[in-house]
Design a protein around this nucleic acid. Sequence first.
DNA 1: GTGGTCTAGACCACG
DNA 2: GTGGTCTAGACCACT
Lengths: 133, 133, 133, 133
Amino acid sequence: MAPFAGLRIDARQATPIYDQLVTQVKLAVAGGTVRPGDALPSVRRLAVELRVNPNTVARAWRELEAEGLVETRRGQGTFVADSARRAPKAQRTKAATEAVARTVAEARALGLSRDELDGLVEREWKRTEGGRS
Amino acid sequence: MAPFAGLRIDARQATPIYDQLVTQVKLAVAGGTVRPGDALPSVRRLAVELRVNPNTVARAWRELEAEGLVETRRGQGTFVADSARRAPKAQRTKAATEAVARTVAEARALGLSRDELDGLVEREWKRTEGGRS
Amino acid sequence: MAPFAGLRIDARQATPIYDQLVTQVKLAVAGGTVRPGDALPSVRRLAVELRVNPNTVARAWRELEAEGLVETRRGQGTFVADSARRAPKAQRTKAATEAVARTVAEARALGLSRDELDGLVEREWKRTEGGRS
Amino acid sequence: MAPFAGLRIDARQATPIYDQLVTQVKLAVAGGTVRPGDALPSVRRLAVELRVNPNTVARAWRELEAEGLVETRRGQGTFVADSARRAPKAQRTKAATEAVARTVAEARALGLSRDELDGLVEREWKRTEGGRS
DNA sequence: GTGGTCTAGACCACG
DNA sequence: GTGGTCTAGACCACT
């Protein structure tokens, strides 16, 4: 499966689209799903795929480049930088913990039981199986 | 524990503050944590507590009122509307599923195993035990 | 004279407009012409003044913010960051030396004599006298 | 010293490489440093020397030819056109004035005194003495 | 084909 | 009023 196959956005969310993309690429790099040298989808292709303006994708890639996570090669495309490293385990756990905390809080507020939550996690995990790991 | 005791905001987040408040109130109503007739914190008190512009809190309450979830009684304050009902199970599950999906996607991107994710959920669930439920 | 009164761009130049603005603000900060807390011109006002698209100015301010040189206060405007310091003398001299080298090289290529070059510098210096210093 | 011996580029600069070359050749012609009939370096040789794609050099020579400043003689190379004349004094002064203006602006923004600027010009002029003039 | 810059203009969030 | 996001579409630079 191609790297970055799973990039997706949610227009209803308050987080800006370009920011959603930045976050997902960062996560993929931190988690080792993609590696230095891997190509990001081209601005135009991804824009078509996500039905988004090319400028929006370009802005995301630009921000990532400013942070040194990716580099653009003229006329070729945008690539994960050689210097981009998989984040250490502790850091990844910390990030995941925050995400989990948000979701648990929401589940509780919605009055879900522990079993119901586990069921949802189980189902979602299965549903997303098969990506490059 | 007073209803709405846990309202909290994160100024660093991209989501507008008023939006964070709206979401939390909605969740509490949908989940049955608060019930029709319960009072929302007063605009001024909450503004002070969260160190936020009173306009921002007012804006949140206004949006909620526009949606019919709360009602303002002159001189008394803002209250959960009588018509506000706990959301039906299916709707609550749908909301929770979206939250879970986001978190599972993030965990996967970070390269966590299923067991690691379960462990984090377990820990977070235990940690937040004891609130009004 | 107001800070940043002298911001100007040259559309004929190869350097992108937003970049020209970034550079000028950086120089002004490094040189002490402007100080922490000083307001940058508003995006819209400057865009009108320079006959440029507001997006272009916004992009410049955004890049400066990403570098921590300025900070934006919601609804108020963009300001030189408190942390922005005047560059040390050595660094300023280095920057100026590069600029001088470029110009001397060009003057030589154009066949100017030393006296002619001095005359131009003299004239330009006089012409720009009167700024905040 | 061979004509065009000093052609050099700066890959870090925003200005396209081919443009940097065009500008330098134009300057050399305008200033009389090179004369009609003088040969430009061959595309390949210069590409190797500057570690640049030959297309880039070719592009520069092509632009210059389109402007009538140089002409290509099949199998021989590229030469300064017979019609290329040293620019009139006024025009050269104008070009130099712009360069000086940019540098004076930068020096002012950096908080340099008139004396400091003069010192830098003096030093740079001395340092570059000895080229073909 | 790739990314980069810029414009024009809409709509949102905040004070 | 301030800045922020996004779209649509043009043109440029480079491979």
